[in-house]
Design a protein around this nucleic acid. Structure first.
Length: 757
DNA sequence: AGCACGCCGACT
DNA sequence: GTCGGCGTGCTC
């Protein structure tokens, strides 16, 4: 046995590189070089932070030595590492980058170079390390007994205050920031007090608490109805059993899902376990955090991308130290360093915002199941309109199915009606909708008008030659935004000033076809001049608080009619809304995406759910060119089962399996001669698939010819959106004849992990 | 990702 | 003559 063998470690580097690297650990660092710590390593001619994975048995070649161990204690546990490895493997992403993404931002050291001028005037390049931890230290003050001398003036006031505190608590300390808040600027006085030995001082780490100044009241568990009790009972039973148990909580809008979450979490806490709650958007966290703070007296941490690096790091440390038992946040909260998780809630599990689409591409809804499995936790996927995938998994018995078919407090579901707009294309509102809005205004109810198209006109046609204005990059039609006075591409943000001349015939007459929210807002104002009208979409809510401002106006009743895009469909609870009008349900129905029916059903159901949540019943009118489409007919009938049955049948028929989030293509055991054939077959299949496709391409075997950008890699993945389909064809083209020996190419698609657990 | 090495075009 | 363009290759 050699002594050095034990001192070889495996290190993951946060760079887009396959594989890990091995280093020697110098003797003095051995006790500190634990798995889960960050280490500073020489890498090429740079110094980088890597993550120590564990000891390695032996390694070939010359090894470099670790320069330093950067942490006193591991940042991640073996369990967490296992989770990171799962992610790296599933999403084909380097482990080092996965770990970096999972840990709070801004704590890594990297070498940088700086040009300095030496004393003799010659420039020198100095290497230094940038980045690093981000702990806030604050100075605390406490009175000492029997001060030898007392100052006068403000100094005396401060001293008397500190002495007063000391009487009730020997160890009472006050931060400099608190003293300055109380006494105004007083740094010189404080320094003087320390100098006089009347006050002692110490530095402590402090947390930056995003909710510090808010005061929360207390509330109590609400009475559950029968279905809520049944759902809660099954979750509680699973928690007591203590093993992995995934559930789909299918509760109609307004059915009280949150109360089920709260009471289930209470059970987990009683069992001394912790809880993780994921919400789709930052905008929804404050509302929910308030509700949790009123209900629970334990530590609650919040994690989302709206926090500063410092705040996030502080919340992370609180969680790691076990000072928070509940974590609430957006998708990145999935990586909260909670120990012994008992329950993971994924609220509005159907929301697309659970997908991370930059860097490590992951879906927090999927990974919640994986983390839950590893932790032996209950995982509750909650939604009024679950993913087809989830519903299918529930049917197959892979997810426990918990149903809340009724609204709480015996509120009825809104009365709904489809309005056929065929042959009435010029009208924004059919007479029935106009009348319903008038009636609703008369009785003082609020109205939501939903249209999933921003801007003023969505289709710009030249009167003279019929040319349609399109984006030169994306081929999509340009949308006219009256507010900005520009023609804008909603795909890439390319824009032209308006009014524009026709690019082909230089004609000046451009007809504005198609309606966006801007035009609907204008029409509503013309038609209902006395109504107070507001608009909510990406354009009208730009900047911080824009979103909250519109919602506040709706809440306090200063808006009668709100026009908006899907933003208005999301989980807000406004008791004053009694009428919902869908201007056109067709925009989302005709998107080139194999999930357009699913999306439309979800969107229409969600927006319908905003109606009648208060004391008065709600009414919904849906205008469409396709009233017999099953997504719409089932939505307005509140017939979930019917819709899911039909959609699952459709998926099976067209070959988009209902257990896959994306479409599936698998090619295995292909040798060089079959490659061309398979590329052609893949291209043919891909033409049939609409929407987004993520392909994992694995080549097992030697690659002998250049493969464009992917040369030298044996595994990679490509995400292909509709308009990038040609990019995939290019890659597949490159695959042809690239293998001198029989190889295996597998093109695999994302499958819901619940199918694999 | 960086950073070096290397091999060709337009510059003081 | 060399400065710098980015193609290619490597990092324990």
């Amino acid at each position: 046995m050699t002594t050095t063998a034990a001192h070889i470690v495996e290190v993951a580097i946060p760079l887009p590189l396959e594989g890990h690297f091995h280093y020697l650990v110098p003797e003095p660092l051995v006790p500190r070089a634990l798995p889960g710590t960050r280490v500073l390593v020489p890498f090429g001619r740079r110094k980088l932070t890597g993550y120590l994975l564990g000891s390695a048995p032996a390694a070939a070649g010359e090894l470099k030595e670790i320069l330093d161990v950067l942490d006193e204690a591991p940042l991640f546990t073996p369990d967490e590492l296992e989770f990171y490895r799962w992610i790296a493997n599933y999403y084909l992403h380097p482990l080092g980058e996965v770990i970096k993404m999972a840990l709070p931002a801004g704590i890594n050291l990297v070498s940088r170079y700086r040009c300095e001028t030496a004393e003799d005037g010659t420039p020198v390049i100095r290497e230094f390390l940038a980045g690093g931890r981000n702990v806030r230290l604050e100075r605390f003050y406490a009175a000492l007994p029997d001060p030898p001398v007392k100052p006068r003036g403000k100094g005396l006031e401060i001293l008397e205050y500190l002495e007063y505190l000391r009487e009730s608590d020997e160890s009472a300390e006050v931060s400099g920031a608190d003293l300055r808040a109380r006494f105004g600027p007083c740094t010189p006085q404080l320094n003087r007090l320390v100098e006089l030995r009347a006050v002692r001082t110490a530095e402590h780490e402090v947390y930056r608490d995003p909710f510090k100044t808010q005061i929360f009241g207390k509330d109590q568990a609400l009475e559950l109805n029968e279905e809520q009790k049944a759902a809660h009972g099954r979750i509680a039973e699973a928690l007591r059993a203590g093993s992995f148990a995934p559930f789909l909580l299918h509760g109609v809008t307004g059915s009280g899902k949150t109360e089920v979450y709260l009471q289930s979490i209470a059970v987990a806490l009683e069992l001394q376990r912790t809880a993780l709650v994921l919400v789709p958007e930052i905008a929804l966290t404050p509302q929910l955090v308030g509700r949790f703070k009123r209900r629970f007296s334990c530590g609650i941490a919040v994690l989302h991308s709206g926090l500063s690096d410092g705040e996030r790091y502080d919340e992370w440390r609180r969680i790691r130290r076990g000072e928070a038992q509940i974590v609430i946040g957006a998708r990145s909260a999935l990586f909260a360093p909670l120990s012994d998780i008992g329950i993971i809630v994924v609220d509005e599990e159907h929301e697309g915002s659970y997908k991370q689409s930059e860097g490590v591409r992951y879906n927090a809804r999927d990974l919640a199941l994986v983390r839950g499995k590893q932790a032996g936790a209950a995982v509750v996927l909650g939604s009024a309109t679950p993913l087809i995938t989830s519903f299918y998994a529930a049917r197959q018995g892979r997810l426990g199915y918990l149903k809340l078919p009724n609204r709480v407090r015996e509120l009825p579901m809104p009365a709904t009606q489809l309005l056929d707009v065929r042959g009435k294309k010029g009208l924004t509102f059919l007479p029935e909708l106009v009348q319903a809005i008038e009636e609703n205004l008369d009785v003082g109810g609020q109205t939501l008008l939903f249209l999933n198209r921003r801007g003023f006109a969505t289709y710009l046609v030249c009167e003279d030659c019929g040319h349609v204005m399109r984006c030169p990059n994306c081929e999509v039609t340009l949308t006219y935004h009256r507010g900005k006075g520009r023609h804008i591409c909603h795909y890439c943000d390319y824009s032209l000033p308006a009014p524009s001349v026709c690019p082909t015939c230089k004609g000046k007459e451009i007809t504005l076809l198609g309606r966006g929210t801007e035009r609907v807002e204008e029409e509503v104002q013309e038609r209902f001049p006395l109504a107070r009208v507001a608009r909510m979409d990406r354009d009208s809510t730009k900047g911080k608080g824009g979103h909250a401002r519109v919602l506040k106006a709706l809440e306090d009743g200063s808006v009668d009619i709100l026009i908006g895009t899907q933003m208005i469909a999301k989980g807000h609870d406004f008791p004053g809304v009694t009428l919902v009008g869908v201007i056109s349900a067709d925009a989302s129905l005709n998107l080139p995406d194999f999930r357009s029916s699913e999306r439309t059903f979800q969107l229409v159901t969600q927006v319908m759910g905003r109606a009648g949540r208060g004391d008065r019943p709600g009414r919904v009118l849906v205008q469409t060119l396709a009233p017999e489409h099953y997504a719409l007919s089932h939505a307005v009938a509140h017939d979930y089962e019917g819709f899911y049955d039909q959609e699952i049948a459709f998926r099976e028929e067209v070959g988009y399996p209902p257990f896959a989030h994306l479409a599936a293509l698998t090619f295995s055991g292909i040798d060089s001669r079959q490659t061309e054939q398979s590329a052609q077959e893949a291209a043919r299949l891909l033409r049939k698939i609409k929407g987004e496709v993520r392909l994992r391409v694995e080549i097992l075997g030697p690659v002998t010819a250049p493969l464009g950008k992917v040369r030298g890699r044996y595994r990679w993945q490509i995400l292909v959106k509709g308009r990038e389909r040609s990019e995939l064809h290019r890659v597949l083209f490159h695959l042809r004849g690239s293998f001198s020996h029989p190889s295996t190419i597998r093109l695999v698609i994302d499958v819901d992990p619940v199918e694999m657990l």
